[in-house]
């Protein structure tokens, strides 16, 4: 068979151009600007600026508050990722077994997917309202004096809860389709070997779900790190005060509320490095250990 190819070098480049231009204008150019301004302290209006070298970075790393926000982001990401994956998996396994009314059940579970993060945050605000929120009352029933916006841990709990609730449907859809792509023959063979449903799940189903699970793990980590912005913003009402916030939200608070362009750019660059590390981790380390069917 003849290999298909281009007769000139320019043709493929021309065809790639639109894509490359878009990437350059909307991704590389702003990223370059962020790196550049992270080495300066500049007047927001653009009149004065001083080259400060790595000072923006050393200021951040020396700031105990920044470390505190980073620690919270880590804990928050672990909790959100773990709970949204675990609960979604449980629901998917149960939904997979349902025969009667399966479609309705699945559709209902996916509904929340359509809720935008700020709206999810707003629903959280209503549910946890200080004086009449139903979930505040529920917590009160168990003797938990829940005060959103006042107590650090309470606000953190609300953030995790809303973020997990919002993410479960996405994970559910993927887990369910992953479960349904497991060949019937494999399941039937397992049924003969092992009588226990739990045993079958951990020995057969779970490893076969690993590619889906790994993909979702990365998706959920990025979700918890970046896409929860709207939820955090709504729950702290734009003014974090003593409430928890994530690293991405701090970039916004310092850059867009505080007009500290240099410090905010340095924080963005740190996050860029984090994403880069995450991507390398995804492709180099784990991808090789997961077997796709």
């Amino acid at each position: 068979m003849k290999r298909a190819g281009f007769s000139t070098k320019w043709m493929p480049i021309m065809l790639l151009m639109p894509q490359l231009v878009i990437i350059a204008i909307f991704f590389y150019w702003p990223a370059w600007h962020a790196i550049q301004s992270s080495f300066y302290l500049q007047d927001p209006f653009g009149f004065g600026s001083t080259f400060v070298g790595l000072e923006n970075y050393t200021d951040l790393l020396g700031n105990s508050e920044y470390r505190r926000v980073a620690l919270f982001t880590l804990v928050f990401t672990v909790l959100v990722t773990f709970f949204s994956l675990a609960i979604a998996l449980l629901l998917a396994v149960k939904a997979d077994n349902v025969l009667r009314g399966a479609r309705t059940y699945r559709t209902l579970l996916m509904w929340v997917y359509a809720v935008a993060p700020p709206v999810a945050g707003f629903i959280g605000l209503i549910m946890f309202d200080q004086s009449w929120g139903p979930l505040t009352r529920l917590a009160g029933f168990f003797g938990w004096d829940f005060v959103l916006g006042v107590n650090f841990n309470d606000t953190a709990a609300a953030m995790v809860l809303v973020s997990v609730w919002k993410q479960i449907p996405v994970n559910f859809i993927f887990f369910l389709s992953g479960l349904q792509s497991i060949p019937r023959s494999v399941r039937e063979a397992a049924l003969i070997d092992n009588g226990s449903a739990t045993g079958r799940f951990w020995d057969v189903t779970f490893p076969l779900l690993a590619p889906t699970g790994f993909f979702l793990l990365i998706i959920n980590i990025t979700y918890a790190l970046f896409d929860t912005f709207g939820i955090v913003d709504t729950l702290v009402k734009g003014e974090p005060g003593n409430n928890p916030m994530t690293l991405v939200y701090k970039v916004y608070v310092d850059g867009f509320r505080g007009n500290d362009l240099g410090g905010s750019s340095a924080q963005s660059v740190i996050l860029m490095v984090l994403v880069l590390a995450l991507t390398v981790f995804q492709f180099r380390l784990i991808d090789r250990r997961i077997h796709y069917t």
Partner: peptide, 21 residues
């Protein structure tokens, strides 16, 4: 200058005083 951020620092620390942190 950067007074918006200074106010944010105050809000944060005052909140911590009042919640006993």
């Amino acid at each position: 200058g950067f007074y918006v951020q200074i106010r944010d620092v105050m809000n944060r620390e005052y909140g911590r005083i009042l919640t006993g942190e």
